[in-house]
Design a protein around this nucleic acid. Structure first.
Length: 370
DNA sequence: GTAGGGTTAG
């Protein structure tokens, strides 16, 4: 960028690139340039988006609050999207109130983000309000708007309404289907999700990675191993098995259905193992298999470059509970209280599992490993 | 310029 004076157009081009890099330093230098040149107007919307995508939503809000064009509906929608991206759902609904008060018009994007926030807040009343608003605006025929409406009803416990609405939609695509199938699984109807999947196939749609993860988790939850295996075959044929998320869900299904050899094979075959992959195996052994193996996997995790997190702890603590490893359990507990879940891999806590076979409290009558 | 879907554990 040396010697080049970026103008407004350049800022519009630069901001999305910086967002992808999530480089806060770049954000600030662009922002500084904007201030020095007294650039104002709608170009600042891209700065709101940029800061939000870099996780600095309070800085985005500062720009939003200082903007002159407070009646620009895109500014409001961008700010709302920023809050959703950062999990600040309450603030989205606050903005919605303020918009109404100031008579700013709602647009498709503000409606979508208000729906997402209402869903996460489990605020059915606000959700219905925004749904009605979408109806009045005549934008409900747009699948991009209708999909979050379906999710909102499902998350607020109105599964019947969600289903009714989903089935009335025209032009259901994979995203709409995934929202609906997930709603069924999360509401505790994995079997129904699997039968609705047949319906999806009749519409000529083929599952992508996202749908596949939902379906595999549905197979696990409904103990449908036959279908689960056929999903696995599909994943292999569609070259999705090596995908970390898909592989994780498959591993989880196999541990849940106690096919540990399958899970381990998948684990060993996986190229990019993140902490979730490790946790899945640890938790799988702890909950459905031999908890001593969970501790063994932990030992291997220590030798890798991956940092354990709170999900790792969940499996370890339950393994300690089953094995009556009171000393180790107490130690982990103390460490959690003291340091939260930010563990250093070199922490002595993580050296304990390898020697805990010598310190097992024993004597308990709880479930023992086979 | 802003915009709808996912996996582990609990």
């Amino acid at each position: 960028m040396e010697g080049v004076e970026p103008d407004t157009v350049s800022i519009l081009n630069l901001a999305p690139a910086v967002s992808r890099l999530e480089d806060i330093g770049c954000c600030k230098s662009i922002h500084g340039y904007v201030i020095r040149r007294s650039i104002c107007g709608v170009v600042l919307n891209s700065l709101i988006d940029m800061y939000s995508k870099c996780g600095e939503v309070h800085l985005a809000r500062r720009i939003f609050d200082r903007m002159q064009v407070m009646d620009d509906d895109v500014s409001w929608a961008t700010m709302m999207a920023g809050y959703v991206q950062n999990g600040c759902y309450f603030e989205v609904l606050q903005l919605l109130d303020k918009m109404r008060y100031k008579n700013v018009k709602t647009n498709k994007v503000s409606v979508i983000n208000a729906l997402l926030a209402a869903a996460e807040m489990r605020d059915l009343e606000r959700g219905v309000e925004v749904h009605n608003c979408a109806l009045q605006m005549g934008i409900l025929s747009d699948i991009v708007v209708a999909t979050p409406v379906v999710s909102m009803y499902a998350k607020c416990g109105e599964l019947k309404k969600a289903k009714e609405l989903f089935l009335s939609l025209e032009g259901r695509d994979l995203v709409a289907w995934s929202a609906f199938l997930l709603a069924l699984v999360q509401a505790g109807y994995p079997g129904e999700a699997l039968s609705m999947f047949q319906e999806m196939q009749h519409e000529g749609l083929k599952p992508d990675k996202v749908i596949l993860t939902i379906l595999v988790s549905a197979c696990a939850k409904s103990s449908n191993l036959r279908l689960g295996k056929s999903m696995h075959c599909y994943a292999i044929k569609a070259d999705m098995e090596s995908d970390t998320s898909t592989g994780t869900t498959l591993m989880s299904m196999y541990t849940r259905l106690e096919l540990f050899t399958y899970a381990i094979t998948l684990f060993n075959r996986m190229q990019n193992k993140d902490v979730v992959v490790w946790n899945t195996l640890i938790n799988g052994f702890a909950k459905y298999g031999d908890p001593r193996l969970a501790l063994e996997v932990l030992h291997r995790l220590q030798l890798s470059e991956i940092q354990p997190d709170s999900g790792t702890m969940v499996g370890l603590i339950s393994a300690c509970a089953i094995l009556d490893y009171l000393d180790l359990g107490t130690c982990l507990h103390g460490s959690i209280e003291k340091r939260g879940f930010e563990f250093d891999i070199h922490s002595p806590v993580f050296a304990l599992p390898s020697m805990c076979c010598y310190t097992a409290a024993g004597g308990g009558n709880r479930k023992k490993p086979r």
